[in-house]
Design a protein around this nucleic acid. Structure first.
Lengths: 243, 243
DNA sequence: CTCCAACTGTGTCCGACGGATACAGAGTAT
DNA sequence: ATACTCTGTATCCGTCGGACACAGTTGGAG
């Protein structure tokens, strides 16, 4: 059976002999994605996926070694390729758009959040996302490790926020939801958690669902900006203009 | 059966009649944590946990409605209470220590990372962590929503980094690992991902495992600091001293 | 053209797991 | 002492991932 690295990175080669495969890796992956979008990751069953593409469960194992590999394929396919950056844009603009694009992708496929964790083989689409982020920072004065760290930082924020938003929107009553379970638990215990209680009261409903995303993004990019400025200061003297 | 909110928030009340329960919610939770620490989340089975505490699988259902609730209890118990902040410390110092403490907790229980996602009932320990973060920011000039956003931002970064580190340390050869799978995939494809290739080459092995944590933490706190300064400027005029 | 090897999809089987239900025993209140 | 309540157990079921053997199909070698 083909390795996961091979599945992700090498184009599928049709065999020379025997009956033609009736399925495609991509059709299976698409079916899995559809199932996951509809019913979440627990809704993705070998049986269900096979049914969706019109074969028996065991036929899938001719294409994929197991469910874990299928899910990995689904992840890279669902995330897709990053959009081309606007030419001439600053590193900040580019990274901002980059992060929002990733955010949109995760919001469209909430199950991907549960999958994109831990030690896993990175797929071509995912690596292309990383490539774009590093490219945006190339020439900024940061070293390689710092560029990768920035990408990690942004990814983490995006994933965290996407989690929060999908959790809220999948709640029974998304309109009034705004961390309803937090309110529920906080009720009657305000004395034990005064700061959180005050913060929640002060936050009211002014927070749109994208507010936290914007906030964190601005904070992170501000922090990166000060680092870049500091690097430039050390090399070129005080800067005469800021972003 | 007791609700998850009740299990998390109300102390267990021994019943009035019938035989004494041989188990404790806490002993079961501890056994689950031990199993998860040893074999990961998939290693946590009702059967195994029951075996560890010396009863049959079904006996656990007298204490816990199901596996999901058990895992929720395990999470709140494993995270534990946050350490008391050093009195007199600045908001930045406090949040820095806060984040590092959370990081240590997640590193000690990597399975918790897979669990602390999505829409879930928050437990007392987890809420206390949040309370401490908001407390550190009280009086800084940020409004409630912003304080909560900062906590979310820091949590996301910590979780992301803990994920990365536990993935690396659980790899077959942690010494040379440093994103070994990335190297593996990148080999022979340097032309397709030039920026990432260059960044990895420039990053070499100088990056300690805590480097990315420190980097992101510094960036985020820098960004928060500039916001706080901006708020103070607007209210009090230009500040005469900085942190 | 024939035969063989390679390959595909199917049916059947198994083990692990989460959970439901019925039941027997233990202990307390009356 | 009796009745009631609660505990732990044994048994059963459905679902899921996966192993395996088998039959049918296809293309290349003789």
């Amino acid at each position: 059976m083909r390795d996961l690295v091979t599945l992700l990175w090498k184009p599928p080669t049709p065999p020379r002999r025997g009956p033609r495969p009736t399925l495609t890796l991509e059709s299976i992956t698409r079916a899995g994605i559809a199932a996951a979008d509809a019913n979440g990751l627990t809704g993705v069953t070998m049986h269900r996926v096979a049914e969706a593409v019109g074969v028996t469960k065991m036929a899938l194992y001719r294409y994929v070694p197991g469910k874990a590999e299928l899910v990995a394929l689904m992840l890279d396919c669902a995330i897709g390729a990053p959009p081309d950056p606007r030419p001439g844009a600053s590193w900040r603009e580019t990274l901002d758009a980059w992060a929002r694009g990733l955010y949109a992708g995760f919001c469209a496929h909430p199950w991907a959040l549960e999958v994109a964790v831990g030690d896993r083989v990175i797929g071509p689409n995912e690596l292309t996302w990383l490539e774009h982020a590093v490219t945006a920072l190339t020439g900024s004065g940061l070293d390689g490790g710092e560029m990768l760290d920035v990408a990690v930082l942004l990814t983490g924020h995006v994933r965290n926020l996407a989690q929060q938003v999908t959790a809220i929107s999948s709640a029974p009553n998304p309109e009034r939801a705004m961390s309803s379970s937090l309110h529920l638990v906080l009720a009657g215990r305000e004395d034990r958690f005064p700061a959180v209680t005050a913060a929640m009261a002060s936050a009211k409903a002014v927070e749109g669902q994208d507010q936290a995303l914007n906030f964190g993004l601005a904070r992170i990019l501000d922090g990166v900006g000060t680092l870049i400025d500091a690097r430039k200061d050390r090399v070129l003297g005080p800067p005469d203009l800021r972003l």
